[in-house]
Design a binder for these strands. Structure first.
Length: 291
DNA sequence: ATCCAGGTTGTCC
DNA sequence: GGACAACATGGA
């Protein structure tokens, strides 16, 4: 991984980083592709605009080395050796096929509160509508990036900005039955009744149980938050697609238990999860993936 | 019109 | 413990 500053842009040369697939695989909801093929979105460190040249080079616009090393590297998990991860996963022939499809996807590390809130909104919902609700949430209750030019966009509102609101206040979001879940999460974050140290570093099952104290946070939402917001790369969210994929890829044994990943994937199950998700979705369902 | 969307909750056995 | 409808909203 090498970087080069050219004017206001920073050029990153690296393999195993596909910007578009990373931003468009369902782990974040505030980025969009522009007409020229670049990507732009609002992060906790301001608006980020980047272009993937497609030949091992990603250009981060209006970015210096400080912004890159301090924010962008952890945001896209760029310090991790995905080559080594892929090699380990490929020890399992089934996973090798998934790796081939998911190559270049990075597991993002987004702000903790934003991730919890976003995946609460994601439940029983589709991605365009999730994005719409989050967009309205930010416009309604977030701080403008530039108070003089609100068209520049809004930061994701902090929990304390939402904690004292009522479901009526959230009605313009059109979040449906999720509005009371958002409020419960905001209140628990704001009053610090969730032990975030435990979520960040405790045993995974305890971290998960801690997040599940929030109404509207079940196993899947908790695992998504752990994986995409808390850097818990060993978390393995099981949605309907993954359940179907696992049943097809790893036919249940005679004990009939839930199919689980091979041992080689255990330390970074979340990365394997994204690869499998990408794999199964690229086949538009089971199709060729089912053996 | 009916079904579905990267689920969770409350309520039945 | 496991099964099952209900939950708001909007697009196909």
């Amino acid at each position: 991984m090498t970087v080069k500053q050219q004017g206001k842009d920073l050029y990153l040369y690296t393999d195993l980083f596909d910007l578009g697939r990373t931003l468009d695989c369902g782990q974040c909801f505030r980025f969009e592709e522009t007409a020229d093929g670049s990507w732009t979105g609002i992060t906790h460190f301001g608006r980020l605009t980047a272009t993937d040249t497609g030949s091992g080079c990603v250009i981060f616009h209006d970015t210096d080395e400080y912004r890159f090393s301090e924010y962008i590297v952890p945001f896209f998990d760029l310090e991790r050796d995905y080559g080594a991860v892929n090699d380990a996963l490929c020890a399992d022939p089934v996973l090798a096929a998934a790796v081939a499809h998911g190559r270049g996807i990075r597991i993002m590390r987004q702000p903790e509160w934003e991730t919890v809130c976003s995946f609460i909104i994601s439940q029983n919902n589709n991605i365009p509508r999730i994005k719409g609700i989050i967009s309205r949430l930010c416009e309604s209750f977030g701080t403008p990036l530039d108070p003089r030019r609100k068209a520049e966009g809004f930061a994701f509102p902090g929990p304390s900005a939402l904690a004292r609101l009522s479901t009526g206040d959230l009605a313009p979001l059109r979040a449906g039955f999720r509005d009371r879940y958002i409020l419960d999460a905001a209140r628990k974050f704001a009053e610090q009744s969730i032990d975030l140290a435990l979520v960040r570093g405790g045993p995974l099952d305890q971290a998960r149980a801690e997040l599940m104290k929030i109404k509207g946070v079940g196993e899947k939402v908790a695992d998504c938050a752990l994986l995409f917001g808390f850097g818990r790369i060993e978390a393995f969210p099981r949605d309907v697609w993954i359940k179907r994929a696992m049943a097809a890829l790893y036919p249940p044994g005679k004990n009939g238990g839930e199919p689980c990943l091979p041992a080689c994937a255990r330390p970074f199950a979340g990365i394997a999860q994204q690869y499998i998700f990408s794999y199964i979705r690229s086949h538009n369902g089971l199709g060729a993936a089912a053996v």
